[in-house]
């Protein structure tokens, strides 16, 4: 396996008295797309939030780009080159598209910086609504904006929380294109997903999380090729 860019080990986390993660371990190699699969409430979003420092892990280690990042403030983790696109998108709805992108802008280190123009190439739908307020955008457009906003920070890896949720099939294809484009740009992506087809179309590796523990850790191809394995972990 290639060098790990992001590595979590024995991650435990929760909210107040509620415990969600019971020792999650996973790794993401440089330039790789990995999918964290699982049902609602299995702990996918919590895993990404704990890695990003949006909730403080109770136990376990997180390493990113050779540094221990567990317990760091989210903005420090982001500055190390880890991007985050939240599940509910959290677009700044009072701001225009261009302003949302401006909030995400950070200098690139040793690579071509993303600019709004380059991003509009990836997300052509956004190009025509530069000055529109984000509140007036559809769910799919907001999702694109959320990804574009994170890319403005020129991250080396991105945590993508359920990018397919609630999107129409045509938008899903655009979204899959975007993830694959990120991969070609050398950005590692860890996405959480419930839509197996979407995950299978973009990811190299798969993790299945259930009740806060990783139950499957292997190649996406293997999971896809084995219906029994898939049924065991993902169906009703």
């Amino acid at each position: 396996m290639a060098e790990a860019m992001l590595e979590a080990e024995g991650l435990r986390a929760g909210y107040g008295p509620a415990e969600i993660l019971f020792g999650v371990s996973l790794r993401l190699a440089r330039g790789e797309v990995a999918a964290l699969m699982g049902r609602n409430g299995a702990g996918k979003s919590t895993t990404l939030k704990a890695i990003m420092g949006l909730i403080t892990p109770r136990a376990g280690r997180v390493r990113f780009a050779g540094r221990d990042i567990a317990g760091l403030a989210a903005f420090r983790i982001a500055r190390l080159g880890l991007g985050y696109v939240p599940e509910d998108r959290r677009i700044f709805t009072d701001l225009t598209v261009a302003e949302n992108l401006e909030v995400g802008r950070r200098p690139a280190e040793g690579r071509d910086a993303w600019t709004p123009e380059r991003l509009f190439e990836v997300f052509p739908n956004l190009a025509s609504m530069r000055h529109r307020h984000a509140a007036a955008m559809s769910g799919g457009e907001q999702q694109m904006l959320a990804i574009a906003r994170t890319l403005m920070g020129n991250p080396a890896a991105v945590l993508l929380d359920e990018p397919s949720e609630g999107l129409a099939p045509v938008i899903l294809e655009l979204m899959a294109d975007a993830v694959l484009r990120m991969k070609r740009e050398g950005i590692a992506v860890l996405l959480s997903e419930q839509n197996f087809d979407f995950a299978a179309a973009v990811a190299d590796r798969a993790y299945v999380i259930e009740k806060g523990e990783i139950r499957y850790d292997g190649s996406m191809a293997a999971l896809e090729a084995d219906p029994a394995l898939r049924a065991q972990h993902l169906s009703l």
């Binding site: 294809e173 294109d177 087809d197 299978a200 169906s235």
Partner: peptide, 16 residues
């Protein structure tokens, strides 16, 4: 619903 929309699958595979 729980396993993803199969109709989309072929299209996405092809693109990938």
């Amino acid at each position: 619903v729980y396993l993803g929309t199969s109709g989309l699958r072929a299209a996405l595979r092809a693109r990938a």
